[in-house]
Design a protein around this nucleic acid. Structure first.
Lengths: 209, 209
DNA sequence: TAAGTTGTGGACGATCCATTCCACAACTGA
DNA sequence: TCAGTTGTGGAATGGATCGTCCACAACTTA
């Protein structure tokens, strides 16, 4: 009925878990990432993690809950990468931070030789329409990324690297679209060098004062 | 063993088909569009079209072949829309044609209240990795769109509406990315007005002479 | 050590789904 | 009208897949 205390690392447990939860989630992520939600079987995950079904279901609930968890953690990681690249520096380097971030995203897609794309895009494409949890989490993630970008654009404007007359909100939305678009056309088969060029071109076109 | 002459409209058939092939493909497309490949059942399609399984399999082969057909026709249609909007006009209106096309794509996504997205993006996200046919067709489609955009950009450059020093190939790739990106962030939950703004912002930033 | 609690793994049940099969219908040419 | 051919619908098949169940293991507390 109610949620019991699961595994608080040090809680007194009757029998301790024999697996590392993080490692299991990593493996599960690999599976979902490679094959999508509908395309991966719980048996695959059991196999990949070495867990029996009982443990798997006991620890994570059903397939949907497990996916939600993996998806949500992915979204968190996506935002954290952006935060790591974008926040906390002088205005003088804001434009460089923006360039670095956009180029990094392009490079990631360019190097994705296995064409797995991004779990965020894949999950949203497959499930956002029917699954409110996925839809909500992906919308949240977009909003967070947009805010990060807007903040840096404003900083670059303050320092005079981007035209102060431009609307930072709109530029942020455009950059986000370019980043997500690169991932989309990359999955659709556009070649890696073109992907890198797209990032550079977008950055070149940002309005100067 | 070998392919028989299927239905040449006027061929001498033993028993004529009782269904309109185009209508069946439309219905099948609706299903795949709404639920993805793995998510739609052949029973759903049989139900939606009113066909029995025998007719369905007899006419279209298996689920994979049916999807490939639907997917390929969608890709053709996507390119045709672009051709209709972009080709065949004076250089003086090339920039207007480009603007019209990009705005139309944004508007389509903005109006997609059911959040179905684009079957091209959805299909590529779900299957491009494992299915060479889907991967190839989507890559072809991207290439065709890119060519159409590049041609119009060159035209606009000739007329002096876009800086002649810019590389039309790169600008075309960027515009394609923006168009596909709008569709991606739209599915991820970005609101309609922002989508329209993104299109406008991208067009505003095209380099003037 | 004994009782109680939670984790484990794999067999099992129930369902779902793609595909095939088949008896029959609708047509053609002779 | 009579074969012969192709289309039709739905029952049947075979395999896959989710989630449960259960006997047993590994702990904690008393």
């Amino acid at each position: 009925m109610d949620d019991r205390v699961k595994n608080g690392y040090g809680e007194a447990m009757a029998r301790p878990r024999a697996f590392d939860e993080r490692r299991v989630l990593e493996r599960a992520r690999e599976q979902f990432w490679a094959s999508g939600y509908a395309g991966t079987r719980m048996d695959d995950i059991a196999q990949a993690t070495g867990l029996g079904k009982g443990s798997l279901y006991g620890a994570f609930g059903d397939k949907g809950k497990l996916f939600h968890r993996v998806f949500s953690e992915w979204c968190t990681a996506v935002v954290e990468v952006a935060e790591g690249r974008l926040t906390g520096g002088p205005d003088a380097e804001a434009l460089a931070r923006l360039s670095g971030y956009v180029r990094l995203m392009a490079e990631n897609t360019a190097c994705d030789t296995e064409r797995r794309g991004c779990l965020l895009a894949k999950g949203a494409a497959e499930l956002a329409q029917q699954d409110p949890t996925v839809a909500g989490r992906s919308a949240e993630t977009m909003a967070a990324l947009m805010t990060l970008l807007r903040t840096e654009i404003s900083a670059a404007q303050r320092h005079g690297d981007i035209d102060g007359a431009a609307d930072p909100e709109r530029l942020a939305a455009l950059l986000l679209t370019v980043v997500r678009g690169i991932e989309a056309v990359g999955k659709a088969g556009v070649d890696p060098q073109t992907l890198r060029n797209i990032a550079d071109t977008a950055l070149d076109l940002l309005p100067r004062p």
